[in-house]
Amino acid sequence: MDAGQVNLLRELLSSTELMADTRRFARTLRSSAREDLLLLGTPEDEPWHLAAHLDDESRFVPELKPTLVRWDPPPGAPSHLSVGLERLADARRGEALFVVAPERAPDPLLERVDDARRTGAVILTLDGGDRELAGLAHDALTVASGGPVTFDQAQHLVSAAAAEESPRRGLRERLARLLDAVSGPQLS
């Protein structure tokens, strides 16, 4: 989906409970990762696409910069693609673990999520109706099969909503975002 399609979908869903839930979840996502946002999928489905969108949005909302945690990173992978499950053992207060699971979460995933929760990480889940996984979460957004959006569309809605202006943002941040939109981001 391109930005125009996402905006159209958001407009079509603007008055629905799903969009209200998505915005609420996105606010929690923005505010929960004060130090690091860990993004984890299932062994069969790593959330690459969502990681890329959150990374794009982090230009405007730095808290959205994700660390993609992989089940089995290949040897020699670039550093941003080589973070393995051992990173979850170091999860702590001030960090958020965002779990994306379109299907039922396997037991090893549930165990790791529970461990991260016990060490103080905020647990957020985007799931397809897994009650066990949602039960471990501090906040969950469930995408029902056969609902108004697909799981992929829900990921786009979450990343877009997470980048929305926060009403508490200061004038300096709003001006910087406007300048980036007009002239493009400043390259380091």
Rank of each mutant, 00 (worst) to 15 (best):
Phe98Glu: 08
Ser145Val: 06
Leu54Cys: 13
Leu40Ile: 04
Leu29His: 10
Leu29Phe: 12
Val100His: 12
Arg24Thr: 01
Glu46Thr: 09
Glu111His: 00
Arg112Glu: 06
Ala91Arg: 05
Ala51Pro: 13
Met1Asn: 03
Asp127Met: 05
His53Cys: 10
Leu88Arg: 02
Gln153Leu: 10
Arg70Leu: 12
Asp21Gln: 15
Asp114Val: 01
Asp152Val: 08
Asp55Gly: 12
Asp90Glu: 07
Glu35Trp: 11
Val143Tyr: 04
Trp48Asn: 13
Leu18Thr: 01
Gly128Trp: 13
Ala3Lys: 01
Gly147Gln: 08
Phe60His: 04
Ser14Lys: 05
Pro167Trp: 12
Arg92Gln: 08
Phe25His: 12
Leu109Lys: 01
Phe25Ser: 07
Val6Trp: 06
Phe151Thr: 04
Ser82Thr: 10
Arg168Trp: 11
Arg10Tyr: 08
Ser79Asp: 10
Ser159Gly: 13
Asp180Ile: 00
Asp72Lys: 03
Gln155Leu: 03
His138Trp: 12
Ala121Pro: 05
Arg34Met: 06
Thr142Arg: 13
Gly4Leu: 11
Asp152Thr: 10
Leu29Arg: 06
Met19Lys: 01
Gly128Cys: 07
Asp90Met: 09
Gly120Gln: 12
Glu164Gly: 06
Leu88Val: 09
Ala91Phe: 05
Pro78Asn: 03
Asp180Ala: 11
Ala101Tyr: 06
Ala105Val: 05
Pro148Thr: 12
Ser145Glu: 02
Leu136Met: 07
Ala101Leu: 14
Pro106Ile: 04
Leu50Gln: 08
Asp127Ala: 01
Glu11Val: 06
Asp72Cys: 00
Phe98Ser: 05
Gln186Met: 09
Arg10His: 02
Met19Asp: 15
Asp114Asn: 05
Val6Gln: 08
Gly135Ser: 09
Thr125Arg: 09
Asp56Gly: 12
Pro73Arg: 08
Glu44Ala: 14
Leu136Tyr: 05
Ala105Met: 03
Thr119Met: 09
Ala160Asp: 14
Leu171Thr: 03
His138Cys: 03
Asp114Ser: 14
Arg131Asp: 09
Asp72Leu: 02
Ala20Leu: 00
Ala163Leu: 02
Glu46Asp: 04
Leu124Gln: 10
Asp55Tyr: 11
Leu37Arg: 07
Asp107Ala: 10
Leu39His: 02
Gly4Cys: 02
Pro62His: 07
Gly147Ala: 15
Ala121Tyr: 07
Arg172Gln: 10
Pro185Glu: 08
Asp139Phe: 00
Ser31Gln: 15
Arg34Pro: 03
Glu57Pro: 04
Ser188Pro: 15
Ala26Glu: 13
His49Cys: 04
Gly76Lys: 08
Asn7Cys: 15
Ala162Trp: 10
Ser188Cys: 03
Thr42Gly: 07
Glu173Asp: 15
Arg92Ala: 15
Gln155Asn: 12
Glu103Phe: 02
Gly146Phe: 08
Ala154Val: 09
Ser145Leu: 04
Arg112Trp: 11
Ala140Met: 09
Asp127Gln: 05
Arg30Gln: 06
Arg174Met: 12
Leu110Gly: 00
Pro62Lys: 05
Val69Ile: 09
Gln5Asn: 14
Leu187Val: 10
Arg168Gly: 15
Thr28Val: 09
Leu109Pro: 05
Gly170Lys: 05
Ala160Gln: 03
Gly170Thr: 13
Leu157Ser: 14
Asp127Val: 02
Pro106Asn: 10
Met1His: 01
Arg168Ile: 01
Arg34His: 12
Val149Pro: 11
Asp90Tyr: 04
Leu133Arg: 09
Ala33Phe: 01
Pro66Asp: 03
Asp55Ile: 04
Asp114Phe: 03
Leu40Thr: 07
Glu46Trp: 14
